[in-house]
Design a protein around this nucleic acid. Structure first.
Length: 1060
RNA sequence: GGGCCCGUAGCAUAGCUGGUGGUGCACCCGGCUGAUAACCGGGAGGUCGUGCGUUCGAAUCGCAUCGGGCCCA
């Protein structure tokens, strides 16, 4: 063991620890050490390789790391690799920015090969940056060999999975309405749509009813540009619709509006008057035909037979009639299928109208809104603007549109029920994350559109014949080589695009141009990370994952995509248990965002307080599944706690070293606690207590970790350090450290502290890996495991747990607080002894605890005696006070007499009588509890304070004996202070001179305490004198000071004694 | 609009199988001075988001409402 002189320096400790691990490759050693253990297969949810990590990313990895370290200590062989999600539109968008591109045309001109190389470089560069950041957080995952979604074997896992989908009939080519980003010119997944408020037109439009003069259906829309694609109007069959004669400026027309909405709609249309001519149910309107108000501008509209249809999604809002364009809306599309409506979608991939949109051709749809509105002419009833939530492309923030296109789908709806079954068998933490949240999401899920019309992604391995349209799904790269007779350098676009296959019909099969939705990449992670399908052994051994943990946003993301892909491939859930964690928010509970300027980065926290503090803060600040409100004050508090851990660790070291303390070891040189276990009955109570506490703590940690209650675990650990170790045990044990001779109680203290620290670092290691490693290395015995992270889990030792003692000590601590309280009231410092402390209680626990631990109680109270009194303490008396509010009305004129009687009566006797009988006779009057109150009357010099189930009375009256000790303690303290100022070692001797201005005090000290003081301050030579007395006045002291001690002036001088 | 979670002193939180609201930080006062650019004690501070209900009794259960978060439409 080495002495630790410096105070806690997080950066030095952490740099040292990381260096220590990297030199010895401790991470690999630990993995090796546990390799024979029961496997624990963990899959890292791959972060996307863009930009830098934020607090949420850090939280995610810290949770994973703490949990995995714990499992390793439990003897599990943890199977893991860090993972990275490296394909996709976000990177394409970044690269497009770098190159100044604005459209797909730019990319095609630049060359797909060159473009994806830049994407690859971008992804790899950022992967490396992020790995470094994670390592700095002390994360132990395999960063040397991470799984990457861009490698050949990974891509193969995706291909293989798609082939499984095809084999099981779950792959489908479909014409569907999808979310479409007009800038990226691709379909995007529901999960890639971000919603925020957008200002849009809100218009009410008349559609002329066919064959009727001057009669119209009134619809409402916020997307005028979809009107050229209108084919129908939907009503609710059960709503009541009104045929209204509406009047404006002497003109009249007939309008169909939902009955309840007539008034507001006509008001908006500035109609002056109206009359309801007829009311009919929606079902009566079904089949009514109408013409488009844009028939003049859009030739195709003249061909369409528009009609009214019934739908269940119509609400009693706006006009109660809904404009239907199956080419531009999900509900519209489904309704179109059901009703056999035409799907008309005159918009291209860039969001511009096609020639089939007639007069609007070539216009960008959102720009066309005004033009369309103008074209409506008289058919426009009203126009407003509305602010509503509208979807945007998550990468480029462009407002999305809905477009009917040909895409590839996985038929998630076909396996939905099986998914719901599987969810029930997964252990969710917290439970509601699965049973409520995820369940509801899956129950509402739709088919999964997996195709994207982009470049940087896993190419969809479908080859389709140009001649006969048959298609085949290729499952592996070897299979592709087999079928095509060619090999490719890289399974990305554009290399794979050039490969053709012969079709049985004699035609040529070419790959469909699409790539996978990037969510499909990570969906196959649980088998791809095991090298499946190329290698099957690990997969068969470990899959499915024992555990995953991600943020609550991954409910719709990775929890879902993995489940879907796995159900398709293997018909079972890819994970056995899931911990869903929260989001990192700012102190106000708001999302951290760059534009809001409230972002706190993990770097900021680490730079100021270090990694371990960040880790401990994040883990203890809130339950894993609650959102984390980041708070600097909280970080500071945790920093203080870690600092105390450090101080508690370093405080006994100088003494241990001075005494050449050697913990017991076994034949292999390993630390051996059996001696301490055998002698447990000989240990002082304080030692037995803290040993019991640390074992109880181990039990608590074990229990709470079962449910991933990491906040409770870390709080319990921190609390132990602060409350039990620092605030109590260290205070109790200090004086034993100072013992000169080789006393057994000092040995016990060393053994105990050593034991507690060894257990404590083991318990703390998964959460604060750096500081625990440093402490452990200093405490470690020759034969002990090389790293704290190689220790086995610290299990509670039932032999050493004494719950009675723990309860009794709680009582003493409460007593200790109460004494301090009473002393403060009596203005008697703790340094000054008192004659008597009395604990008045009715509680057996308090009585027994104070009785059993009396020496400790006495020492803590610095009291000559501590006594327990059950019932009434005879030195207490009660003062009776008349309650005139009750006496006055009842006794009338006699009142003043009663008052005087009460005031003169013995309060204690009166109280006893009333308590016994409920009444008391006094001078012929009968008194009850309502006539008199009692206040405790304390003897002179006695002060009281409450403790748990008892009251403590402290008599602070001074006697010459007490006073002598008090002054002596004051002198000792000041000489010690001067020793420190001289920077003396604890074992140096001194010579000292104390001149006391008050000769009575000087005599008091000298007669009883001269020797005591000499011993305490290690003085070979001590002179205490009154002002007149002679001493070494002429002597030059190394340090001389004047002090005011409780009003008595003293002059003290000390020097180091020569020799020894 | 829907689902899930959260809302307790200036800040962060515990309590939530209903029975007199705990803790930490900050603040004020004090102690200790061989862990000392540390450590410890005490005090003050609360309509438990709001409203209604169930109950002898609600922070805790129910309903509604407001605010925050994630997700969905």
């Amino acid at each position: 063991m080495k002495e630790v002189t410096s105070s806690y320096d997080a950066h030095a400790v952490e740099e040292w620890a990381q260096d220590f691990w990297s030199v010895r490759d401790t991470y690999a050693e630990v993995q090796q050490l546990r390799s024979a253990g029961r496997p624990f297969f963990f899959v890292d949810g791959p972060p996307y390789t863009t930009g830098h990590i934020h607090l949420g990313t850090a939280w995610n990895k810290i949770l994973k790391d703490a949990i995995l370290r714990y499992h390793r200590m439990c003897g599990r062989s943890v199977i893991e690799r860090a993972g990275y999600d490296m394909h996709g539109l976000p990177i394409e968008v970044k690269v497009e920015h770098e190159l100044g591109f604005t459209s797909k045309k730019d990319i095609e001109e630049y060359g797909i090969a060159a473009f994806i190389e830049r994407c690859r470089t971008f992804a790899e560069t950022h992967k490396d940056i992020m790995s470094e950041q994670f390592k700095r957080l002390g994360i132990w995952l395999d960063f040397e060999n991470p799984y990457q979604t861009i490698t050949e074997d990974y891509i193969e896992a995706a291909w293989w999975t798609l082939k499984r989908a095809e084999e099981r009939g779950l792959l489908e080519r479909g014409h569907r309405v999808v979310n479409w980003c007009p800038r990226c010119e691709t379909a995007i997944a529901d999960s890639e749509v971000e919603y925020w408020d957008e200002k849009d037109p809100s218009i009410f439009v008349k559609f002329p009813v066919a064959g009727r003069e001057n009669e119209y259906l009134v619809i409402w829309t916020t997307t005028p540009w979809t009107l050229p694609a209108n084919v129908a109007v939907a009503v609710d069959a059960d709503f009541t619709y009104a045929r209204v004669l509406a009047k404006k400026d002497f003109a009249e027309e007939l309008l169909w509006i939902a009955d309840d909405l007539v008034e507001p709609v006509l008001k908006l249309g500035r109609y002056q008057d109206y009359e309801v001519l007829e009311r009919v149910p929606g079902s009566d309107l079904v089949g009514v035909e109408y013409t488009s108000p844009l028939a003049a501008q859009v030739p195709q509209q003249r061909e369409i037979r528009h009609r009214v249809v019934a739908a269940d999604f119509v609400t009693m809002e706006n006009t109660g009639l809904v404009h239907i364009a199956p080419g531009h809306g999900w509900d519209d599309y489904l309704l179109g299928i059901k009703e056999g409506l035409e799907v008309f979608c005159p918009v291209d991939g860039g969001g511009c109208f096609l020639p089939s949109a007639g007069a609007f051709a070539d216009m960008y749809v959102r720009d066309a809104n005004d033009v369309v509105i103008d074209a409506l002419g008289d058919n426009l009833i009203a126009r407003k603007t509305i602010v509503h939530r509208y979807g945007h492309c998550w990468r480029c923030k462009t407002p999305i549109i809905f477009r009917a296109t040909e895409q590839w789908f996985l038929k998630a709806t076909g396996i939905r029920d099986r998914m719901l079954e599987e969810i029930r068998d997964v252990a969710w933490h917290p439970e509601w994350a699965g049973s409520a949240r995820f369940h509801d999401f899956v129950a509402d899920s739709r088919d999964w559109c997996i195709s994207r019309q982009r470049y940087w992604g896993i190419p969809i391995p479908i080859w389709q014949c140009e001649a006969c349209s048959t298609y085949t799904v290729v499952g592996t790269i070897a299979e592709l080589a087999d079928l095509s007779g060619t090999t490719i350098p890289d399974p990305h676009r554009p290399y794979v695009d050039g490969v053709t296959l012969p079709c049985s019909c004699g035609g040529v099969m070419r790959r469909v141009e699409d790539i996978f939705d990037v969510w499909f990449d990570s969906a196959v992670a649980s088998w791809a990370t095991l090298g499946f399908p190329r290698q099957r052994e690990a997969f068969e051994k470990y899959w499915p994952a024992d555990f995953i943990t991600e943020g609550q946003d991954q409910t719709r993301g990775w929890f879902y995509s993995q489940l879907g892909a796995s159900m398709i491939a293997f018909d079972r859930s890819p994970y056995r248990s899931v911990l869903m964690h929260g989001f990192a928010l700012d102190a106000e509970g708001r999302k951290m965002s760059k534009s809001f300027g409230n972002v706190v980065t993990p770097d900021e926290v680490m730079n100021q307080y270090g990694v371990d503090v960040l880790r401990l803060y994040i883990l203890s600040a809130s339950a894993p599944w609650d959102d984390l409100k980041f708070n600097w004050d909280g970080v500071k508090t945790v920093h203080r706690a870690v600092n105390i851990l450090w101080n508690v660790y370093r405080f006994p070291l100088p003494y241990m070293i001075l005494d050449a303390f050697q913990p017991a070891t076994d034949a292999d040189g390993r630390w051996d606690a059996s001696l301490l276990r055998e002698r447990r009955r000989d240990l002082p109570e304080a030692d037995r207590w803290i040993i019991s506490r640390v074992n109880s703590l181990a039990g608590q940690v074990e229990e709470e970790m079962e449910e991933y209650q990491l906040h409770r675990v870390t709080r319990a650990l921190t609390n132990f350090v602060l409350e039990d170790l620092s605030r109590w045990y260290v205070q109790l044990v200090r004086s034993r450290m100072w013992l000169e001779e080789d006393a057994p109680e000092k040995r016990f203290a060393y053994e105990t502290i050593y034991y507690v620290m060894r257990r404590l670092v083991g318990l703390f290691a998964p959460f604060v890996p750096h500081i625990t490693e440093q402490i452990y290395q200093n405490l470690r015995m020759e034969g002990d495991p090389e790293s704290v992270h190689m220790l086995d889990r610290i299990e509670p030792d039932p032999l050493l747990i004494d719950t009675h003692l723990e309860a009794a000590m709680d009582v003493i601590r409460s007593f200790d607080d109460a004494v301090a309280n009473a002393r403060q009231a009596g203005k008697r410092k703790l340094r000054w002894p008192v004659e008597e402390c009395v604990v008045v209680t009715e509680s057996d626990l308090v009585r027994d605890a104070v009785g059993d631990l009396k020496p400790l109680a006495r020492a803590r109270a610095n009291s000559r005696t501590v006594t327990v009194v059950e019932g009434a303490w005879d030195r207490l008396s009660w003062q009776a006070e008349p309650v005139m509010r009750a006496i006055g009305p009842e006794f009338g004129k006699e009142g003043p007499k009663v008052k005087a009687l009460i005031e003169q009566a013995g309060g204690s006797a009166l109280k006893a009588a009333i308590e016994a009988d409920g009444k008391a006779a006094l001078g012929g009057y009968e008194l009850t509890a309502r006539h008199v109150t009692f206040t405790e009357s304390l003897p002179e010099g006695v002060y009281a304070a409450p403790m748990k189930d008892a009251t403590v009375y402290v008599d602070v009256t001074l006697t010459p004996d007490l006073e002598a000790e008090g002054y002596a303690r004051e002198v000792i303290r000041r000489i010690q202070e001067m020793r420190r100022q001289l920077n003396l070692n604890v074992d140096d001797f001194i010579a000292a001179d104390v001149q006391v201005e008050d000769s009575r005090v000087a005599d008091l000290i000298r007669s009883a305490w001269a020797t005591g003081i000499s011993q305490e301050v290690r003085a070979k030579d001590l002179v205490i004198r009154s002002p007149g007395e002679n001493g070494d006045q002429g002597r030059k002291w190394a340090l001389a000071k004047d002090w005011d001690v409780e009003g008595v002036s003293m002059r003290m001088g000390i020097s180091q004694a020569g020799g020894q």
